[in-house]
Write a protein that binds this DNA or RNA. Structure first.
Lengths: 341, 341
DNA sequence: GGCATTTTCCAAAGCGCTTTGATTTTCTCC
DNA sequence: GGAGAAAATCAAAGCGCTTTGGAAAATGCC
């Protein structure tokens, strides 16, 4: 059932039917209801490809997921982000396109996306420091919203981000106030912007309290469980071991916990852990009492918001980009306690 | 730069240029190379919407992710599956479309997808027992491949699945051979087909060894960490506690491990755990020596294979559907040991 | 060289929709 | 009742591509 058939069935022109369906005013209410009813009854759905071709809009948003050549990892955060965004798209009648892009051919990929015309805008995931994509996208004129920010990029652009620096400063400070002095940082890869900011926050807190920054207590890797385990195991085997860990991911924190147990130590008593928590649906941080003391910020919510931002950007381009800084909340769980002195 | 401009630039008709670009034989090699070069130089990319409209093919595959109304969870497995599939699509020049669908309006959603014409086929995720979608999709004639199977559906359809039943039978048997008799099953939601099959495997192994099935040792829930923790905590507090756990997910297994530690018990000595392992990139099961003894099957590989299957289905519809049963390998880790007697 | 093929290229129609500009119908008011 | 304005409808062009049915150019063969 296409528009032509529908209009023939109704004895109306395609123009009128199209207008009736799309809510244009130049059509009488009586025929509009008649058209709507027929469309409903005959199960008519416009062909999006044709619609897109005619209007020049794709009614779809692209999500570009960088796939590093070295790290085959898919960001575990992605599922929840998508879930949040998906709801917003569904409401607006937009589709969601996914594109995995190797960082080796990023430039080509974005130009491709632009030229193929399959999306009206894109969400940029996993920004790194001084991310080239922002300039590229601005140049080719494809609306976009960055999930995160990019230090050293001076162009204006739209983004939504967690206050990573503030959160990690606060978390570290919380540990310091509990009396910890030897605080380790198990960060994500620090070419990633979020990780870079987290380190800054951590360092700021230490500096504010006159604690010297000890590079041997800082790690930067892909945030897996094994990473947390190994790093903690090594650090806890030293003569002057850290009494607290700040982790960039619950998964890493779980690895740290494993090492803590294995070393015969007790969480919160001998070793404290504080972690960032993206509030992933399949990785709840406990229930009534959280397992880990955490800096929590729902990535799902961020996804929904990012989508809304992008949709409104597409609907009516602003000259000043919209930005949105989310604060992580510090929730006290059972993984932190006063430092033993 | 569109086809018209390109052909004017070349002083050729659109027909010839189109044919040259798409590899049709009715064009001389000399002009073909000339066209190809110009397309390259001028950065020409065909508009996919127009191409799709003209050819009737969308050059895109849809992934439909069921979102339960009760459970807001996004399957953590999804990211890796997509990563696998994405590679296959990229090679074939296909796009990937994502659609979150509430189970309340599934029927409508699939008809919608069909009518809107934005995809050439879809991958069905998370099949339940007697899944209606299979009949629906067969009826509306949209090519599809199911990731998993659906018990009680008698129509022929294409699928790729892990031998869940065999794997869990084998895993359970492994525990029995270690002397365990009180073996708990922490399964996923059993209306999901995979979970149903896993229970069958578990039960078969018990029956084969004359061990009676104890419903109080079986749970079926969304596979979170907290679920594993709570269930294990409760079971381990009984007078006759289980000596081993079979889990449907590493995340749940991690929760069980937490409960084991908290109860002052030692893994592999007092309590054994065996778990299914989807080989998720961000949740590696240890490195050289796996943390958990596990039934491993890469969901990423399954994604790549599913995509290939669907693409070949679309390229040339067969009358007999293709099916693919993957075997999980049993890898021995540090979470299992002989039962204490 | 001249005819029949074969090769190479082209004009135009069509995919299913939107939208412009024109036309018809209905309404308003003296 | 009829002129003019407003409301409702329509025919046709166009979005950027593919593809059908020919036409023109090149080639083969006697």
């Amino acid at each position: 059932m296409n528009l032509k058939e529908l209009s023939e069935h109704l004895n109306l022109s395609q123009t009128t039917v199209s207008r009736a369906l799309n809510g244009y005013p130049e059509v009488s209410e009586s025929t509009r209801t008649r058209v709507l009813k027929a469309a409903q009854d005959l199960n008519y759905r416009p062909n999006l490809r044709a619609k897109g071709l005619a209007t020049g809009r794709a009614l779809a948003i692209g999500h570009v997921i960088p796939v590093s050549n070295q790290h085959e990892m898919v960001n575990p955060v992605f599922g929840d982000f998508i879930a949040g965004a998906g709801e917003s798209y569904a409401k607006a009648g937009y589709d969601m396109m996914l594109k995995l892009v190797r960082d080796s051919d990023e430039t080509r990929a974005y130009e491709d996306i632009r030229a193929r015309g399959t999306v009206d805008g894109i969400i940029v995931h996993g920004p790194v420091i001084n991310d080239e994509r922002i300039a590229l996208l601005s140049r080719i004129g494809l609306p976009f919203v960055v999930h995160g920010r990019s230090t050293d990029v001076n162009l204006p652009y739209s983004w939504i981000d967690v206050n990573n620096r503030g959160a990690f400063e606060r978390g570290t400070q919380f540990l310091i106030e509990l009396g910890h002095r030897q605080i380790a940082l198990l960060n994500g890869l620090e070419h990633m912007d979020f990780a870079f900011r987290r380190r800054k926050g951590y360092e700021t807190a230490l500096q504010n309290h006159g604690i010297s920054i000890d590079p041997s207590l800082m790690r930067s890797e892909e945030m897996t469980e094994v990473y947390g385990y190994r790093a903690a195991k090594e650090m806890l085997s030293r003569s002057s071991k850290p009494t607290a860990f700040v982790c960039s991911s619950i998964i890493t924190a779980i690895g740290v916990r494993r090492a803590v147990h294995e070393a015969g130590l007790v969480l919160a008593r001998d070793v404290s852990i504080i972690t960032h928590d993206d509030a992933l649906s399949y990785l709840e941080n406990g229930d009534d009492v959280p397992i880990f003391t955490a800096l929590r910020s729902s990535v799902r919510y961020a996804g929904a918001e990012a989508a809304e931002m992008l949709l409104s950007l597409i609907a009516g381009p602003k000259h000043t980009p919209t930005t949105r800084l989310l604060e992580a909340e510090l929730i006290i769980g059972r993984s932190t306690g006063p430092a033993v002195t």
